[in-house]
Design a protein around this nucleic acid. Structure first.
Lengths: 338, 338
DNA sequence: CTGAAAGCGCTAACAC
DNA sequence: GTGTTAGCGCTTTCAG
């Protein structure tokens, strides 16, 4: 799509100055006399001139753009992260380029695309990448920060919460409150968050001499979690407590139990989630869960990215933030004594 | 952030060809011999060369970028729209630039920013803009499509659903099923969707000789809607039915009634929403609502944008899609006979 | 089919 | 403070 555009040359001509004077007039701290700048700005206004960001990027070699890669916005947790991160970067003069990462092999093309775009940084939300992919990006020197996923590669910064501790807390709570058959409703198999939450959970049970009653997976999604719940409760021995790897699945389990299987939560089955999405606090659900410090995660992730971009601190870092238990009504409570 | 980058010149040198041969090798249908291309591609691989999108955009004058402007992602309806639109454009080789529009005056700066970015099209989600702002964008010749908001300006395409009809249906349903005091829980005051939904609703009531029991506003947001509901039900005469201008508010009302005020839905109060977000169908809410044809809206909006970009059909258009009533359990049902 | 040459619109030295 | 001069990395005539 080509449209006739007015260039700095046109403005220069109208204002009777050189083309570079126009350029300077649009640079915050360039040496131009107030008089010249005013003349230029006036001419620009008349012509409807606006500096071409692309040309500027080419020469300054800085696109002022951050790529944000997401897998899905189904989970309100990530749409919230995306919205806040956007505001954060926008406020600092950065543009955001959004990439929805497809599954599997096609992801490599997205990486390629991102690199070609000359972005200055990449923010990945819950994106699992391989070592090979990580090193490919790192090789071009673009700073990357991954939120909520771990990759075995030092060249990339990571910000996540203490998933293990969260899982541990959930296991401890459920075990301490007298549940006998505690099950795990897992997220995406193989994802680092899922494995860490599960590991913490299992170890808390083990400390009490308990084992997990059963494991099924809901891929972090609502519908899948409903199916998983039905499977879990079609067994002869049904769970009396569920720890779900995220809130969306915890709510799905709750809905299925209450409205499909005629069970009461928490009387018949206790449920604990993870994330603390807005719906978790809705009275209907009143979900006991582990709150991720979303605001802090974003601040850390964006700072990390910006620091690397500006070479302030060039070393990638791995940050692990604490989670906060939110005791609500979906799980029978009990005192936790380690 | 400047990093040493390998250019087409470097590749040309290594491959022993001219720089333009390199350029051609990376253009889908340029005339290069297979042999040359292979040599170039190999050299490029060795060097880790990737064409610089920015330089390309500068000369071709096409950024292959669409700006998407949102106000908030709180409402799952819009995060869903965003996700699908992203996939759609990505599949067609476009990049997406995300802008979170601030309220009020600062929006002008965002517009300016968008124009400078040389995007080829703008997709606005539920963004209310003034005539002046609309004409400013239209003046630079960038196609714009607004989803779910109307603006009194012909130069801009609009895609929305039949809000009036939806409101009318809600009014009719509630009036026909014997409710006596039907209230309206409005969205953002002054937004076109809110006004149209309200107008349709009121006219359905009027046809039955009824008036609206009361109006309050929840700004399309959960928390605000909860406050509004409390206000509505602190009056001496309380509503026995509520039509909320979107699902998020409808659910907020339901939560407040059931868990805070001890009222039953739908026995004491019927509730009808608008949008049909995923949560609406969750059994806990089982919300009767008007479904917006989200997939179709996106297809239409994106087609409209692409057509204008490619000059296939240059004329802006206003498209109004039908809504589909979703009868669930939050409102006492009744046969509707006009 | 291929190379040489001319810029896209702008910023950044460099003299004046 | 201002104009002049080089390019940024690439696509695109234009000859050959």
């Amino acid at each position: 799509m080509k449209i006739k555009s007015v260039t700095s040359r046109d403005v220069a001509q109208l204002a009777g100055v050189s083309q570079s004077a126009v350029s300077r007039s649009f640079s915050p701290n360039a040496s131009v006399s107030a008089k010249t700048r005013k003349r230029v700005l006036e001419a620009a206004r008349q012509l409807g001139y606006r500096p071409n960001t692309i040309a500027r990027s080419l020469i300054t070699r800085s696109s002022k753009t951050i790529a944000v890669v997401i897998y899905s916005l189904d989970n309100p947790f990530y749409s919230s992260v995306l919205e806040r991160a956007s505001k954060f970067f926008q406020a600092r003069g950065y543009h955001l380029q959004l990439f929805v990462a497809p599954l599997g092999k096609a992801f490599d093309e997205v990486i390629d695309d991102i690199i070609r775009s000359q972005v200055e940084g990449v923010l990945m939300l819950a994106i699992s990448i391989t070592r090979a992919q990580a090193s490919e990006i790192a090789a071009v020197g673009v700073p990357v920060v991954i939120i909520n996923r771990t990759v075995d590669y030092e060249g990339i910064s990571q910000v996540s919460c203490d998933n293990y501790q969260g899982g541990y807390w959930a296991g401890q709570l459920l075990a301490a409150s007298g549940h006998q058959r505690i099950a795990f409703l897992g997220g995406l198999i193989g994802s680092s968050t899922n494995e860490q939450r599960q590991a913490g959970f299992l170890s808390a049970l083990a400390e009490r001499g308990m084992t997990c009653h059963g494991v099924d997976a809901g891929n972090y999604r609502y519908e899948d979690a409903r199916f998983a719940t039905r499977r879990m409760f079609s067994a002869k021995q049904v769970p009396d407590a569920i720890f779900a790897a995220n809130d969306l699945m915890a709510i799905a389990a709750m809905e299925t139990l209450r409205h499909e299987l005629g069970l009461k939560v928490p009387q018949d089955v206790s449920i604990v989630g993870f994330d603390d999405i807005p719906m978790a606090s809705w009275p209907s659900h009143s979900l006991t869960t582990l709150q991720q410090p979303i605001e802090l995660m974003i601040v850390k992730a964006t700072e990390l990215l910006l620091n690397q971009i500006n070479q302030t601190e060039s070393s990638p870092d791995h940050i692990k933030l604490p989670v906060t238990p939110m005791l609500r009504d979906s799980a029978r409570s009990a005192s936790i004594s380690p």
